[in-house]
């Protein structure tokens, strides 16, 4: 049963990953990427890594890919233009691909992941919470690397914002704090007008 589920989701993952690079429409490619993420999350669930699986869905499927689609939908990508010269460059591309695959294969080949290197992990009961275990490890043994990673991310965010931030002093935008801080005096001025009865002076009829 478990192997069956594994093969279904792996097939989904590999097929959708292939579709990502082969479909014509970039928006469809992004949707296939979502499907591929989702299938890999399912495989992680099979490995009893439920925390990582759900975080993968929340972060990559729920946030990263939504923003990705947001951008892709607004771009006008002409696939015909991009695919021009595909046949001419094909031999070179294949050669590069084979070279890269060979490098990776000889460095980390199948033996590096065999059962002699990694023993089959223990199964845990339903009470075992790998969220708690992960939290304990992350905040004790690896607390410095965890915090350094967090700071690097923060620096990345600040750098990205400061690169794209442009001040446009001429644009008019709402200043909420000014609006809240406003007093009735600033908006409305009550002018005291003397209510003295003016003497009625009938307009003199000037006869000329």
């Amino acid at each position: 049963m478990e192997t069956f589920v594994f093969y279904i989701f792996s097939a989904f993952m590999v097929l959708s990953a292939l579709m990502v690079i082969s479909v014509n429409n970039p928006v469809k490619a992004a949707f296939f990427l979502v499907l591929s993420f989702f299938a890999s999350a399912a495989i992680w669930l099979l490995l009893e890594a439920e925390f990582l699986a759900i975080i993968l869905v929340i972060v990559y499927v729920g946030a990263v890919m939504v923003l990705f689609l947001f951008v892709v939908m607004m771009l006008d990508i002409n696939m015909v233009q991009i695919k021009k010269g595909f046949v001419n460059n094909l031999p070179l591309a294949v050669a590069v691909a084979i070279a890269m695959f060979a490098t990776i294969f000889f460095v980390v080949g199948g033996e590096s992941f065999s059962q002699s290197v990694f023993t089959i992990p223990d199964r845990h009961g339903a009470d075992y919470s790998n969220v708690a275990e992960l939290g304990k490890v992350l905040y004790s043994d690896y607390v410095y690397s965890f915090e350094i990673a967090a700071v690097i991310l923060l620096v990345g965010i600040i750098a990205a914002i400061s690169l794209t931030l442009r001040r446009r002093p001429n644009t008019r935008h709402q200043k909420i704090e000014d609006q809240i801080a406003v007093k009735s005096k600033d908006r409305l001025q009550v002018v005291k007008v003397d209510a003295q009865p003016r003497k009625y002076e009938p307009a003199k009829e000037e006869q000329k």
Partner: peptide
């Protein structure tokens, strides 16, 4: 987290 994941999908 599961509920958050479902609403985000």
């Amino acid at each position: 987290l599961y509920i958050l994941a479902m609403t985000s999908i």
